[in-house]
Design a protein around this nucleic acid. Structure first.
Lengths: 242, 242
DNA sequence: AAAATTACTGACTTATCAGTCATTAAGATA
DNA sequence: TATCTTAATGACTGATAAGTCAGTAATTTT
């Protein structure tokens, strides 16, 4: 190993960066062993941590691995985060909230039918969150809720409740405008969201280990159709359902 | 605790069997420090482990805690299980499979309407699995699927696939008998099960940390109604849906 | 009652990993 | 080019927890 340098002594910090292994130009560049990228590190570390937390869970994730995946040493990680737990909190708190806020705004301006809005909500959710890394946060938070109750409450208030709120808005809008039949709305948002959430969870669990894959487009299309069908006005009556 | 015995005990096996503490009857009973219960231990250990795995996850659960909850020492745990991983596998593999087999048998004999069968399936599932400790296994397996791919596959084949099979049977039965409209059945079992599974997950995560509770009966009743409504025959047509 | 058996104990060993810090070198400044 | 600042390193420490085993005592057998 290391043909040109490093006699024996595998000592501290003596490793050579093997600039140009074969050519003669070796003395020329000597590209640095590492770069100073103060601004980029936190984001890269958080992204690496998110991936590993989702994959292995909080406890089973080693900070050495997080650091390596982000291309730095563990010491560097501790320059930017005080502890493993703080890193976890950072990772959870980012990302999803802003997407929800965006959609809340978009929804207020919407003019078309409530059925179409529902379709749009579900497909947008999938594209913006479910299909991305953010989708894994749900699984992560679900697994760790018991170990981080305060964080779980934060997540519940800022992500789950507001996410349900989107569905709530659509359903109520549909009923008010006479497009949907008047079902009890208490648990309707949860029911509408459940299949979407399950799909996200699936993708970050059984999907990975060679089990059958789900085709998101088809699955969600069927869900949406079923939902709209279930909300259709009864043609021959106007009494509310049981 | 143990009013008559155990004075201080902190030493290495030197504990004295309590000469004459206060009463005169002391010599009489001298209840043993522990009992030999070879047959009961594995079950008790597995039950304790299940609870803690569900609560904290696999990695975050300490075997000392498992042993203590089962009322034995860690050494005893290792008399009955070779490793933490084996304990985990045992805990996962037991329980649910037999419930599913039971229901498969019951379902074959069923005579009534498919809508009623669907209602029965969902409420039975909830009572037999969801509302019991078994419900937590789902969350556990979901969290740990990435760390135990082989076990995840086993679970997928023996629990998930067969559980979905129950829904599949009902839906196909309904369509064949002309009770339900002819929707594409590929993902219908998943969609029917998703809200039930989500409810189980919820109970073992956010439900615990002071977040809003779900009322299972109402939630499941609405789900069932929505589902049956979505599967109702279209009154004025017999074309299949998109 | 004494001897034999074995379920059970808990201190110990060992490995792992979160968190620290003295040292190093990249890049800015003079 | 030399000097200075500080981002980055990685060997080290201490704590925690999986797994072991010599010893102890509950129960059975004689």
């Amino acid at each position: 190993m290391s043909p040109t340098t490093t006699p024996a002594k595998s000592q501290s910090h003596v490793v050579i960066s093997d600039p140009h292994p074969t050519t003669l130009s070796s003395a020329k560049v000597l590209e640095p062993r590492w770069e100073r990228r103060k601004d980029a590190r936190p984001g890269e570390l958080a992204a690496a941590a998110l991936e590993l937390f989702i994959e292995k869970g909080f406890s089973a994730t080693r900070l050495d691995d997080v650091a390596r995946r982000a291309g730095v040493s563990k010491g560097t990680l501790y320059l930017y985060f005080d502890s493993k737990e703080e890193l976890f909190k950072t990772v959870i708190s980012e990302g999803i909230v802003s997407r929800i806020a965006e959609y809340e705004a978009r929804m207020c301006e919407y003019e078309g039918s409530s059925a179409d809005l529902l379709r749009d909500l579900i497909s947008t959710w999938w594209e913006q969150i479910g299909a991305t890394t953010l989708g894994g946060i749900t699984k992560l938070m679900l697994s760790e809720a018991g170990n981080f109750p305060a964080l779980a409450q934060y997540y519940h208030e800022n992500v789950i409740t507001r996410g349900m709120g989107l569905f709530d808005y659509v359903v109520k809008r549909g009923i008010e405008r006479g497009e949907f039949r008047n079902v009890p709305t208490e648990y309707l948002p949860r029911l509408s969201a459940a299949p979407v959430v399950m799909l996200m969870l699936w993708r970050h669990s059984f999907d990975l280990c060679g089990c059958e894959q789900i085709e998101p487009k088809e699955y969600l299309a069927l869900h949406t159709d079923m939902l709209i069908h279930a909300l259709k006005l009864d043609p021959n009556q106007d009494k509310t359902s049981a």
